[in-house]
């Protein structure tokens, strides 16, 4: 595969705890932009602020019209879909919810696939609905890599299971193995 330029991560129920573990174990030298969509995101910058204390990389809330920066974790703001323009700047929308969610993982994954094509890794973690499954399929259709948390080890199995059913995965593994995998894929 192409050397990845970005990692997109989607999660819902149980996502905050999973993100803490994953982001903490990322290599601080990681040169990719990391984009996170978590359904439990709420008011202005709350999730980003909470995650910053548990991340090897700086964490900020994604701002419209600002670029996706390498080596920075960008979190989708609560109440808005997060998308990417082809020039790798962020866009926000208040379009209808997708899978009862805004931000929706499918929306982020679809537009990231349109933008980064094969140079993208999609990660689906714990969650209680099926958001992200179709987006992950789009990422694979564009030649990107799909990583799914092993459902049995997830706090909520429905989301990773739906991702496996609909998109399949290049890697399916317990949470604690995902950060080392990303480090290996992204630094070599």
């Amino acid at each position: 595969m192409e050397r990845p330029e970005a990692i997109v991560i989607g999660c819902s129920k149980g996502g905050f705890n999973a993100l803490k573990l994953l982001l903490d174990a990322l290599d601080p030298q990681l040169p990719q932009a990391v984009l996170v969509c978590c359904h439990t995101a709420s008011g202005a910058g709350v999730l980003a602020g909470l995650l910053a204390a548990h991340s090897a990389l700086p964490v900020i809330e994604a701002t419209e019209r600002q670029p996706a920066r390498p080596g920075v974790v960008h979190v989708a703001p609560g109440g808005y879909h997060l998308l990417l323009e082809h020039d790798r700047h962020f866009a926000l929308s208040v379009d209808e919810q997708v899978c009862f969610s805004r931000p929706s993982i499918d929306v982020l994954f679809d537009s990231a696939a349109d933008t980064y094509h094969a140079a993208l890794i999609g990660v689906v973690l714990t969650g209680a609905n099926r958001d992200g499954a179709h987006g992950l399929a789009q990422i694979r259709a564009h030649g990107g890599l799909a990583v799914v948390q092993e459902p049995a080890s997830a706090e909520a199995a429905a989301m990773p299971q739906a991702a496996l059913d609909i998109a399949g995965a290049d890697y399916c593994m317990p949470l604690e193995q995902i950060a080392p995998l990303l480090n290996r894929l992204c630094l070599t």
Partner: peptide, 9 residues
């Protein structure tokens, strides 16, 4: 219009 959302719609 910003293309990403427009394309989606």
């Amino acid at each position: 219009y910003a293309p990403a959302s427009l394309t989606r719609r």
